[in-house]
Computed example of a mutant assay.
Amino acid sequence: MTDGGQGSLLAQPLQRPSAARVAAHAGLFLLGAVTGLAGTLVQAAWFPGGLLLALVGAAGLFLGGAYATGGRGGAVAPVAGWIVAVVLLTTARPEGDFLFAAGGTSYLFLLGGMALAVICATLGAGRQPRGGPARLGK
């Protein structure tokens, strides 16, 4: 399959990420964990507004991370932090304390957050090849 003489635009070699990109993704991971923790506390406190606030905050972080870094990895980093925090908070502790009740709101938060994670990672700005706009059929 030929690329019409535009091989330099379509097939760019992968490069090692810069230190700034690694730091940005690590910061987004931590922000995702904090958002998961805050969402866990808020979603049960003020129903239904707390649930909506938690989900909108998570979606904003996921999609904002994708646009801030210019790639879908910027959405995946906070999603990973959110999932790690939420999964760690779903386990019951030996003292009997837990943050998630066995109600519909908790399940809506967990499943809604995961659905938003997939949507935002899919809609996030993917990396585009560099160069000017091309017209087909020239």
Rank of each mutant, 00 (worst) to 15 (best):
T122V: 13
V22K: 08
A68V: 11
P78R: 01
L53D: 04
T35S: 07
Q12S: 02
G5E: 03
L116E: 03
F29T: 09
L123H: 08
Q15V: 12
G70Y: 09
R16P: 00
L14N: 08
A117W: 01
G96N: 07
G64Q: 12
F98Y: 09
P78C: 03
L53G: 01
F109Q: 04
Y107S: 11
R72Q: 11
I119S: 02
E95S: 15
R93C: 01
P133R: 13
A101Q: 05
G36V: 03
G32M: 06
R21P: 00
L99D: 00
A121T: 15
F98K: 09
V76F: 14
L63R: 15
L52T: 09
L111K: 03
R93F: 14
A45S: 07
L55G: 04
A134M: 12
I83W: 08
F29R: 06
A134E: 10
T2C: 03
A125K: 15
G112E: 05
L9I: 12
V84D: 05
A20V: 11
L28Q: 07
A19H: 05
T105D: 04
M114G: 12
A75S: 14
V42I: 14
P17Y: 01
G131P: 03
V86I: 10
S18M: 04
G4T: 08
V118D: 00
L31H: 10
R135T: 12
L14A: 14
A44L: 05
T2K: 06
G49K: 05
A117N: 04
A33T: 08
T122E: 13
A92Q: 09
F98L: 09
A24K: 06
L110I: 15
A45R: 13
Q12F: 00
R127T: 13
V56H: 07
L63N: 10
V34N: 04
V79F: 15
